[in-house]
Amino acid sequence: WVPDSEAPNCMNCQVKFTFTKRRHHCRACGKVFCGVCCNRKCKLQYLEKEARVCVVCYETIS
């Protein structure tokens, strides 16, 4: 899990986070992404309901 303080930009597209461009943690890899790069949901083994995942993890999992 990457702390918010260590991620000033999206770890995929590099967009800078602001008050309106929020950070989202991928529940699969723990990296920090913008809403566009972390907009998929899928079922993870260790969680009961679907969770937010990044586009890279989504392609790997599904």
Rank of each mutant, 00 (worst) to 15 (best):
T20K: 11
C38G: 12
C26W: 01
N12V: 14
V36R: 09
M11Q: 10
P3V: 10
V56Y: 10
C26H: 00
F19S: 15
A7T: 03
K16W: 04
Y46D: 15
A51V: 08
F19V: 14
V2E: 02
K31F: 06
N39D: 15
S5T: 08
V56T: 13
A28K: 08
C37M: 01
G30I: 02
V2Q: 03
R40M: 14
C54Q: 01
R22S: 05
Y58G: 15
C29R: 00
V55G: 10
E59W: 06
F19Y: 12
K31D: 15
I61G: 14
K16I: 07
W1G: 07
K16A: 14
Q14L: 09
K43G: 10
L47G: 07
T20A: 11
T60Q: 13
Q45A: 08
A51R: 08
C10H: 02
R40D: 15
R22I: 06
E50L: 10
R27L: 02
R22M: 10
T60K: 04
Q45T: 07
L47C: 10
T18G: 08
V36W: 07
E50Y: 04
G30M: 05
K31W: 15
T60D: 13
K16S: 05
C57W: 00
E6S: 09
R27C: 02
K21R: 06
P8W: 06
H25R: 03
C42Y: 11
D4K: 04
Q45M: 08
A28R: 11
C26F: 00
K43H: 13
V32R: 03
V32L: 06
L44W: 07
H24M: 13
C37Y: 01
C42A: 12
W1Q: 15
F33K: 02
C13V: 00
D4Q: 03
E6Y: 06
Q45I: 11
K43D: 15
C34G: 01
C57Y: 00
A51Q: 13
C54K: 03
C34N: 02
V53C: 14
N39Q: 12
F33T: 05
C10N: 01
C26K: 00
R22F: 04
C34F: 01
R27A: 05
H25N: 05
L44C: 05
Y58R: 10
K43E: 14
E59R: 08
A7Y: 05
V36T: 07
Y46F: 07
S62Y: 11
F17Y: 05
Y46Q: 15
C26R: 00
C42T: 14
V56S: 10
R40K: 14
H25T: 01
R27F: 01
C29K: 00
E59Q: 08
G35T: 11
E59P: 10
E59C: 09
S5R: 10
C57V: 00
A28E: 10
C42Q: 14
K31A: 10
